[in-house]
């Protein structure tokens, strides 16, 4: 097969952009993706053996932008991972990559972080309550202007000067149920967003 340097350069530039967008993913995975697409582009651009610059242009146009393609890989990967294991760590890992690629991904990441952190803190409050019976839990205090503020305290250190423990021992069941519920809800939310995003990207040509 013969190929002009112009055509070669176009292919390399496209694959380079794709590789850059997939940074952070497993090296072997990225190499496979890039090589598979290189093979696709060559097959499309050279049905008769000669790779022309115009053929490369047409085949790259049909693939869509490398940025779009990278986002599809990341959201599809997120969905597949999550269906296999619903681990928040893996989901957050994929969300960080998605966030680096799009505004939508960034917002999903922010919401997911808030959800997971709040969920984990609630669980920790519940778990630590027996060890810090006088200080851990949901505390409420009224400041000088009369506004109520809520704190989730893990109970390390001394009891606060102001405010009171609202839930008492109820923090244990409430913290566990609401905490685990929040973690699950956050996972479902992240998956739902990824699914929605993926659907919006699968556009038929005809």
């Amino acid at each position: 097969m013969s190929m002009g340097s112009d055509a070669q350069q176009k292919i390399e530039s496209y694959l380079g952009r794709l590789r850059a967008q997939l940074r952070g993913a497993d090296d072997e995975e990225v190499r496979e993706i890039v090589e598979e697409l290189r093979s696709h582009i060559m097959d499309k651009a050279a049905p008769s053996g000669e790779v022309s610059s115009a053929g490369v242009d047409a085949s790259l146009a049909a693939l869509g932008s490398p940025e779009d393609l990278a986002r599809q890989y990341i959201t599809d990967n997120l969905l597949a991972r999550a269906e296999v294991s619903r681990s928040p760590v893996r989901i957050l890992e994929s969300l960080f990559r998605w966030a680096s690629l799009s505004v939508a991904g960034f917002f999903v990441l922010v919401v997911a972080i808030v959800g997971y952190v709040l969920g984990v803190v609630l669980i920790l409050c519940a778990v630590l309550k027996p060890f810090h019976p006088h200080t851990a839990g949901l505390w409420v205090s009224r400041d000088s202007t009369g506004d109520l503020s809520f704190f989730l305290r893990l109970g390390f250190g001394s009891a606060p000067m102001v405010g009171r423990d609202v839930l008492g021992w109820w923090i244990i069941p409430v913290g566990l149920v609401v905490g685990f519920g929040l973690v699950m809800l956050t996972t479902r939310f992240a998956l739902w967003c990824a699914r929605l995003y993926r659907r919006s990207r699968v556009l038929p040509r005809g």
């Binding site: 993706i33 598979e36 697409l37 696709h40 499309k44 049909a62 693939l63 869509g64 779009d68 393609l69 599809q72 890989y73 959201t75 599809d76 990967n77 969905l79 597949a80 991972r81 269906e83 296999v84 990207r201 699968v202 556009l203 038929p204 040509r205 005809g206």
Partner: peptide, 19 residues
């Protein structure tokens, strides 16, 4: 006549493989 944008199929295949 299930024609899709060509790029779409590769991420989907990678997902089916992960599954």
């Amino acid at each position: 006549d299930l024609i899709v944008t060509e790029g779409t199929i590769y991420p989907l295949l990678s997902r089916l493989k992960a599954l």
